[in-house]
């Protein structure tokens, strides 16, 4: 469905976000995109739906090459791709239903849309999508009154309203609690299977990757360093992805950016006689081999 040929992208500030990517996402797969922060995952997603035009290479969306196409053509092609965001990106002051109808904007005229004159069919479709994500009861509530998990489900309904062939989800569960995360991932999997569409999810939770994804693509510094079945992603592969090939505890802790006290000579302060003593420990850095844990070892007060 979507194919990248020798795609590279450099931002205006000189950051090389993507380097010579050759990838294909298609058929009806649930694919997870993983890699350390700054690896280019979000950029890749925005290249896929044409929001970012790569500096080099070609992107084929079905039979259309979109990197050189006009804005109007890219916009029409983009309707085939639904997007789900980390911060949900709902229009906070509109109702859940109006937010889902945003997914129909690309299919209607500008003038009609300015008066919010959505067709009956569109409104029915939007309501059905809300039902599907279990949010029909909240259809008339303003988006900013919903919880994070609920907002993300409305976000998914908005993507569904486009009746897409591919759903891109950019860290859809990073801002959610474990229960909502599970609901959202289950929902995405269900949609992928029932609608036979492709779902590409950018994830940081390796547990979720193993539970839901069929295929895993690992990015590091803008390059593909892993592309295989999810069960091939063992601890060593994950470690290589997040910490580099020559992994040692030292580089791992560098990667985790752990703070250590700066050692220096005391500065004498005249008259500073007040002294408070306390107990202080620094735990040995707990090193999570799969990089799963978000809980960096912290200095601990006793």
């Amino acid at each position: 469905m979507i194919r990248l040929e020798q795609v590279s992208h450099q931002y205006a500030n000189g950051t090389l976000a993507l380097q010579n990517l050759n990838l294909e996402f298609g058929g009806q797969h649930f694919t997870a995109l993983i890699g350390p922060s700054g690896a280019g995952k979000s950029t890749l997603m925005r290249v896929l739906n044409g929001l970012v035009r790569p500096s080099n290479g070609k992107v084929w969306l079905e039979n259309t090459e979109i990197t050189k196409a006009s804005d109007a053509v890219v916009r029409l092609e983009r309707r085939k791709i639904g997007m789900v965001f980390q911060q949900f990106n709902l229009i906070r002051r509109l109702t859940a239903l109006e937010n889902v109808l945003i997914g129909r904007l690309g299919f209607m005229g500008t003038l009609r849309s300015s008066f919010k004159a959505y067709s009956r069919a569109d409104r029915e479709l939007a309501m059905r999508m809300l039902e599907r994500v279990g949010m029909a009861d909240q259809a008339w509530q303003r988006a900013d009154t919903l919880s994070g998990g609920q907002q993300q489900r409305v976000g998914i309904a908005r993507a569904l309203a486009q009746q897409p062939k591919l759903i891109l989800a950019d860290e859809p569960i990073s801002a959610l609690d474990p229960k909502s995360s599970e609901q959202v991932m289950e929902l995405l999997l269900e949609i992928q299977q029932q609608d036979s569409i492709a779902v590409l999810v950018n994830l940081h939770h390796l547990d979720a990757v193993r539970d839901y994804a069929k295929r895993v693509v690992g990015l590091r510094a803008g390059q593909v360093v892993f592309d295989g079945r999810a069960d091939q992603l063992d601890d060593d592969a994950a470690r290589a992805l997040y910490y580099g090939e020559n992994d040692t505890a030292e580089t791992a802790s560098d990667a985790l950016n752990l703070e250590r006290p700066v050692v220096s000579m005391p500065i004498s302060v005249p008259g500073s006689s007040a002294v408070i003593t306390n107990q202080f420990t620094i735990n040995s850095y707990t090193h999570d081999p799969a990089g799963l844990s978000n809980s960096r070892s912290k200095k601990e007060w006793k």
């Binding site: 965001f85 229009i91 002051r93 945003i102 500008t110 908005r158």
Partner: peptide, 24 residues
Amino acid sequence: GQIEAVRAAGGNAFQAFTHGVFPQ
């Protein structure tokens, strides 16, 4: 982000304003 969401759904520049910027 809200503007990007309208663009990502296939909205044009005018719709990005009327549905993404203006409600905000």
